[in-house]
Computed example of a mutant assay.
Amino acid sequence: MQKYYCENCGSKSNSILSLTEKSCYRHPLGSGNGKHVVYQGSEKAQYSCKYCGGTSSSIFSLTSFPCPQHPNGNNEGRHLPLF
């Protein structure tokens, strides 16, 4: 069964609908200010940040930390997984 992940927090679901109908606690606009966004890439052993190239074994752990090269400024946003 395919899993769908949120690109902002790494939450997973068995369907796109059940994922995207819930609020994301790591949404760029703030916790609860937006819905989960479906990660468009495939499942991988390592995920890389779109901005700095940092890596982690899960989207959840990658997005847990601020990114030093985020477009909003140094550590002003979280890592975002590269597709």
Rank of each mutant, 00 (worst) to 15 (best):
M1Y: 04
Q2R: 13
Q2S: 13
K3W: 07
K3I: 11
Y5V: 05
E7C: 07
E7L: 12
E7N: 03
E7H: 04
N8W: 13
N8S: 05
C9W: 12
G10E: 08
S11Q: 14
S11F: 13
S11G: 03
S11Y: 15
N14P: 08
N14G: 15
S15A: 03
I16H: 01
I16L: 07
L17H: 12
L19S: 05
T20I: 09
E21S: 14
E21D: 12
K22T: 01
S23M: 14
S23D: 12
C24W: 05
C24R: 02
Y25R: 09
Y25W: 14
R26W: 10
H27E: 02
H27A: 02
L29W: 02
L29N: 02
L29A: 07
S31N: 00
S31F: 06
S31E: 06
G32F: 08
N33E: 09
N33K: 15
N33P: 00
G34I: 10
G34Y: 04
G34L: 10
K35N: 10
K35T: 07
K35Q: 10
V38C: 07
Y39M: 01
Q40E: 13
G41Y: 14
G41S: 09
G41Q: 11
S42N: 13
S42Q: 15
E43A: 10
A45P: 01
A45Q: 12
A45K: 14
A45R: 13
Y47G: 10
Y47A: 04
S48F: 09
S48T: 12
C49I: 03
C49H: 01
K50S: 00
K50L: 13
Y51F: 07
Y51R: 04
G54M: 07
G54A: 15
T55S: 05
T55M: 04
T55P: 00
S56K: 11
S57R: 15
S58W: 06
S58I: 11
I59G: 00
F60T: 09
S61T: 15
S61A: 14
L62R: 04
F65Y: 14
P66K: 12
P66W: 12
C67K: 01
C67S: 00
P68E: 02
P68W: 01
Q69D: 15
Q69K: 15
H70L: 05
H70E: 05
H70T: 04
P71F: 09
P71W: 10
P71S: 03
N72C: 10
N72D: 15
G73Q: 09
G73S: 06
N74K: 09
N74D: 14
N75I: 03
E76R: 07
E76Q: 12
E76F: 07
E76T: 05
G77V: 03
G77Q: 06
G77P: 01
G77D: 02
R78F: 12
L80Q: 02
P81Y: 03
L82S: 11
L82K: 15
L82A: 07
L82C: 05
F83N: 05
F83K: 08
F83T: 06
F83G: 02
